[in-house]
Amino acid sequence: MIEVKNITKKFGNKKILKGLSFTAKKGEITCLIGINGAGKTTALNAIMNLTPLTSGEILIDGKKLTKESYQTIAFIPDTIAMLSQMTIRQAMHFMKDFYTTWNQERANELLNFFQLTETQKIATLSKGNTAKINLMLGLALDVDYLLMDEPFSGIDIFSREQITSVFTSHLIEDRGVLITTHEISDIEHLIDKVILIDDGIVVKDFNAEDMREQEEKSILDVMREVYVK
């Protein structure tokens, strides 16, 4: 389980996170929802120790993040975390070189599924295909947790469909997925848990199916109640 405990973060005098707390469990898809600037990306960066916190604590399976944790928790940022002059093959080589949890078989499977060839240069890929390679570089690691920052933003509908179908496959199964988005409709059916963030704090935290069952509300209904006042 990823536990984010009361984290705060200041950029200069501006508070980005104001005591954010939530958890994301293994085997579940947890979605952080909030408008741009609500602090979603900062929260993911903080989990990966890519930005310092002003206060608070983050635990992964009860322990603080160490360099070894990067073998078991992967982050897929909203731009591809690889050099654009590399070919897909070189990018995979780079990953294989550094990560013992790199799973080449799964990488090939994903390339096949996305219909991409390894000789292609990252710089020449379309936005949708770049997003797929970015996803592949994270998914081909045998990790317990996968963090994704806005995996659907700015890409075409067919790429979005392909990426969502990865979410319902064995490639995601049994892992803990933490995903941020400001646009829910693509993945409404996929999410286990929803965390609504506004202005650096969690305003609501619920299980999507329970919400539908007990209050007959869609995720969007809840968002409307929370964000439109």
Partner: peptide, 11 residues
């Protein structure tokens, strides 16, 4: 089933 219906395996 999850894959065919594009739903969460937990669902």
């Amino acid at each position: 089933l999850a894959n065919q219906l594009k739903i969460n395996p937990n669902t």
